[in-house]
């Protein structure tokens, strides 16, 4: 496509050896791409580069962070009071639910003929804040201000208020890139809570919609069905809310139903996310991790996983 610049062209003599430089840089780029795609040879380089990018990310994020800070510090007493009341009410409600939860867990253990109730599947969690950085416009990814120094690892599940948010795609030292469940390259194994039907929910590149492309026309699914994680795939534990079905289209001429669902997590409205660590060996936890292969092709992305 591109001719190599021979030496000694009088018209272009001002630019020396561009053809050679082009060959060099083009080859370098291609080698980089190859190494980055195959295996994890560039893991350390990426780690270093994302550390170098962090100051710029901080700088870009700072105006909106400052604006938030100003708004927080000048919040009126009434507004704070109202929020405090709302939080207190929410807390009371959660407490009430938790009271029953203990009893239910014991009952469940009894039904399953276990000796003692299982501990909670979540071992530890860590809140993080989404940084205001634009990644790719047409993909659904965010940068969060927690990284490997806080123990974040690749393939870690990320929750938000309301439900499942995504998983860690890349962990830098102080920040990490999270791929949302609504990214077109992301798929999450789900289960219909009502019927137990298992399928896969795929992102659309739109914060409000996911599709369930692999359901036969006659499958048992209705509008308003809740989808929870099925625990298959080895990334997400079972039973976390993912989405609510908003549309079921059955065309008798088509083998598959057209099902659309709305994510339950406040994906584009909330700045706070939660990284979770699961108790290994717990029945609801994702299957024992096998290194970086913990992100198989179905759960999560094809990106960077072998």
């Amino acid at each position: 496509m591109v001719a190599f610049g021979g030496s000694g062209r009088p018209v272009h003599s001002r630019v020396a050896a561009t053809g050679l430089a082009f060959t060099f840089y083009a080859t370098l780029s291609i080698v980089l791409m190859f190494l980055d795609q195959r295996g994890n040879w560039l893991e350390y380089a990426r780690y270093g580069l994302s550390a170098a990018a962090y100051p710029v990310q901080l700088a870009v994020n700072s105006p909106s962070a400052a604006w938030h800070w100003v708004r927080e510090s000048f919040a009126t007493r009434e507004a704070l009071q109202a929020r405090n009341d709302a939080l207190r009410a929410e807390n009371r409600e959660l407490e009430m639910r938790a009271l029953r939860f203990e009893a239910l867990a014991a009952e469940n253990a009894q039904l399953r003929a276990l000796k003692a109730a299982l501990p909670e599947v979540v071992e530890k969690w860590l809140p993080g804040e989404i940084m205001n950085i634009e990644l790719s416009t047409l993909r659904q990814r965010v940068i969060v201000n927690r990284g490997a120094t806080s123990g974040i690892f690749k393939g870690q599940a990320v929750l938000a208020r309301g439900g499942l948010m995504g998983q860690v795609l890349r962990a830098g030292p102080w920040s990490s890139e999270v791929i949302l469940i609504t990214d077109p390259e992301h798929a999450v194994p789900v289960q219909v809570l009502r019927s137990g039907l298992r399928t896969i929910a795929v992102g659309q590149g739109n914060a409000g919609v996911m599709t369930l492309p692999y359901l036969p026309v006659n499958s048992d699914i209705k509008v308003d069905d809740q989808l929870v994680t099925s625990g298959l795939g080895g990334v997400f534990p079972a039973g976390y809310p993912v989405a609510r079905v908003i549309e079921v289209g059955r065309d008798p001429g088509q083998p598959l139903a057209l099902v659309r669902a709305q994510p339950l997590a406040a994906i584009d409205r909330d700045r706070e996310v939660t990284f979770v660590w699961f108790r290994p060996g717990h029945p609801a936890a994702p299957a024992p991790s096998t290194g970086s292969a913990a992100v198989p092709s179905l759960a999560g992305t094809a990106q960077d996983t072998q």
Binding site: V2, F22, L28, D36, Q37, A52, S136
Partner: peptide, 21 residues
């Protein structure tokens, strides 16, 4: 590439080609 989370070298190659021309 680093900021967009793309494959390392992707935008680099595209830019080098365009700049070369």
């Amino acid at each position: 590439d680093v900021f967009r989370g793309a494959v390392l070298g992707e935008h680099a190659l595209a830019l080098v080609i365009v700049a070369f021309l």
